Simulated scan of single mutants.
Amino acid sequence: MKVTVDEDKCCGAGQCVLLAPDVFDQREDDGIVVLLDAAPPEELHAAVREAAAVCPAAAIDVDENA
């Protein structure tokens, strides 16, 4: 799995951080997503998929084939 984020789309809702704090964080000044792990371990894949699914701005892309 390879994860990418589009900071320009991010609205700072923070759902990704709540669901997968080992993979996502937020900048202090504006709440925009920060990707901590672009290739998370398998045990985090379900949480990353859920974070991408609930992102209101669709700023998270998950490539299952990478």
Score class of each variant (00 low, 15 high):
R49G: 05
V33E: 04
A51W: 07
C10W: 12
E64Q: 05
R27K: 06
E28C: 10
D63G: 01
A13V: 05
E43N: 13
R49P: 11
V3R: 11
H45A: 14
A46K: 05
A46M: 01
D8P: 14
A39N: 04
V17S: 02
D30Y: 15
V48R: 15
C16W: 04
L19G: 03
E43V: 12
C10M: 13
A52K: 02
D22E: 10
C11N: 13
A20T: 15
V17I: 02
A39C: 09
V3T: 10
A46Y: 12
A57E: 06
P40F: 12
E7D: 11
G12C: 02
E7V: 15
C16M: 07
R49D: 05
F24M: 01
P40C: 13
C55T: 02
V34F: 03
I32R: 05
Q26N: 01
A13K: 14
V33T: 04
G14L: 11
R27H: 00
D63I: 12
E42K: 15
L36A: 01
P21Q: 04
G14F: 03
D30N: 15
A58Q: 13
D63T: 03
D37V: 14
A59L: 06
C11Y: 09
P56Y: 09
T4D: 03
D25G: 10
D63Q: 03
D63L: 00
A52L: 08
A57L: 06
A46H: 00
A51R: 06
R49K: 12
H45E: 06
A38Y: 11
P40T: 14
G31F: 00
E43F: 14
V48P: 04
G12W: 04
A53W: 10
T4H: 04
V17G: 04
V34C: 08
C16G: 01
E50V: 14
E7R: 09
D8H: 15
E42N: 13
V33N: 11
C10A: 09
A51Q: 09
A39P: 11
V17M: 02
E42V: 12
P56D: 04
A20Y: 07
T4C: 01
A53V: 08
C16H: 06
A52H: 09
D29L: 10
A39T: 12
M1N: 08
Q15L: 04
L36D: 06
L35I: 03
M1Q: 12
V62A: 15
Q26D: 01
L35P: 08
E7C: 14
D37C: 06
A57T: 00
E50F: 08
V33Y: 07
F24E: 04
E7M: 13
C16I: 04
C10D: 03
P41N: 01
E64H: 06
E7N: 13
A51Y: 11
A57S: 09
D37W: 07
V17D: 00
M1R: 12
G14T: 02
E7G: 13
E64P: 10
A52C: 08
A38D: 01
P40W: 11
